[in-house]
Amino acid sequence: MGGFSQAFAEAFVLLWRFDAQVLEIVLRSLQVSSLAVLIGTAVGLPLGACLAVGQFPGKQTAAVIINGFMGLPSVVVGVVVYLALSRSGPMGEFGLLYTPSAMVIAQVVLVVPLMAAIARQVVEDAWRNYQEELAALRFGWWDTVRVLLHDCRFSLSVAVLAGLGRAMSEVGAVMIVGGNIDRATRVMTTAIALETSKGDLPLAIALGIVLLVLILLLNAGAFALRTTVMRRFE
């Protein structure tokens, strides 16, 4: 297959030339997805911790639902957010459809269940270990949540990275709510879909390689940060 070697060559050229258009698309991907993950972190991690620590009827059901929502198809999220943001929809007056804000909203919906589910598992495991100590300190459930979130912050970085990975790699939702508008809402994944539909498969794979390199760099950065910070605390 000559296609693959051609794709790698094109990817190398794209990275080497620092193509302005590709750079713009990469930056937009990063902005949209990091904003979505930031909001996802603020909502998803406390939500997961509450599900782990809280004692309420239907707790098991809630955990199953959150875990199930990890597999939510992004295209379904796209359609639902589209209907909500459409001019004829409940939030139509804000005119958010086909803007980067719409893409952030859709990605938040996608990453919150994933991040909450991972956080719930991580925090629950920690809680099992410290349950007696925390009870002895007469911590209320909210204080318990806060302490455990802080205590698990290094393990929880996995949840953040998983959220970032999902946000940056999904295409179904951002395609529908963003519209893949050139210079406005085109991100890495929608650009890849567009090149595929033009039959320019080498360029599509080249952009895919750029995306993969980017996600690997982010993960490597997070790993390095985590290692240095942990060393300082030990």
Binding site: R28, Q31, V32, S34, L35, L38, P100, S101, V104
Partner: peptide, 8 residues
């Protein structure tokens, strides 16, 4: 990030 959202 807020700034970058505004820039978006």
């Amino acid at each position: 990030l807020a700034l970058s959202a505004a820039a978006l």
